[in-house]
Design a protein around this nucleic acid. Structure first.
Lengths: 190, 190
DNA sequence: GAATTTTCTTGCCATATGGCAAGAAAGAAA
DNA sequence: TTTCTTTCTTGCCATATGGCAAGAAAATTC
């Protein structure tokens, strides 16, 4: 499946009927990133979203103690960005970084808003995508609220995306634990 | 401020310009609930949202171990409902319960969708509200992921809504800890 | 206001997770 | 390959949170 097709498939989830060609075309900036390179850093304007063509990306920040906290991962066929800032129209709070060499296609928020005005179906996309994000974040919130670290790790194990290519220390902070603890949990499971 | 005005103020946050009268009128079912009464129970159709006129409401469920887990609270001027189900068009997963005597105004999802079709500005509401929910849930997720139970409790302390009227055992499960632990944390702080 | 129910606290001890530092293993660079 | 860097594991011990049960306190009901 071509990159274009992947984006098409993604948009079709939210816009089942109708033409999405000008939407696809509005993702008009392609950016290649090397492993560990930043797509975005805190303080920058982040008035855009990116669609992952290739590679794995992560969103992270440094907490008050200076510890790196991974907030989110994105895999090919998904969007990536600092959604907290994007939705609030603020400057970036997070880093967005390539976990491995990768490529994204970018759409500016201004373009997105033009599309919203042009076509109510595209506006439906805006709503449905935000609803989709809500649902995802709620599920992760619930898992942090109610499951043990081991149970959360087992959830990740069920998704092959997480188990290849991603250093365990990133997964540990994503799970809300230290890499030391994750190492012990893994030892316990096998 | 009248209940009508409260709802108006709420909607204006998302629809700053333009007329919201028919939107307000679509919240056309008023329901009074006694303390501990359920607005919604798991398995029911939950194709509506409620706006809190009076009282405090909470969303909760029973986890695998049979322990009650409070997922969310809503106070006057806010919406309440099983958003996970609402956004996914599924049957209710959660209980929605009055923490104290209260009153809500309800809008059916079907009405909401009529409004979306009628007026693109209302569709903007749908998008912005979902974005607002995303931001809120993300912030809570981050606090669960990165803060200690004590730090999370201190965050709640900063919001007067939580510190009146809500039994500590509900707050404890909202924080992801047992009521016993919350009791000890409180003892430690004072 | 007495009785009943619900909520909150506390003691004792168990388990989960963290902090640090050393070394092993794996991966990247030369 | 060899070297260098990054990541992962482990031991020792500390801290955070949980489980249970009893009693205290508060709220509700009669």
């Amino acid at each position: 499946m071509s990159d274009q097709d992947k984006l098409n498939t993604f948009l079709r989830k939210y816009i089942p009927l109708g033409n999405v060609e000008d939407f696809v075309e509005s993702f008009d900036v392609v950016r290649k990133l090397n492993k560990k390179e930043f797509l975005l850093e805190p303080g920058q304007a982040c008035s855009y979203l990116a669609f992952v063509n290739k590679g794995t990306f992560r969103v992270f920040f440094y907490d008050n103690a200076g510890t790196e906290v991974t907030v989110w991962f994105s895999f090919p066929g998904m969007m990536i960005g600092d959604l907290l800032a994007f939705f609030q129209d603020s400057r970036a709070i997070f880093y967005v970084q390539a976990v491995e060499d990768g490529e994204v296609r970018i759409i500016a928020k201004s373009k997105l808003e033009e599309l919203y005005l042009k076509n109510p179906e595209y506006l439906q996309f805006g709503r449905k995508y935000a609803e989709y994000v809500s649902v995802n974040v709620m599920q992760r919130m619930l898992s942090l609220q109610t499951l043990s670290a081991e149970e959360r790790y087992l959830e990740l194990l069920a998704n092959p995306n997480y188990m290849q290519r991603i250093p365990l220390k990133y997964l540990a902070s994503y799970l809300g634990i230290t890499d030391t603890s994750l190492s012990r949990i893994r030892k316990n499971i096998v």
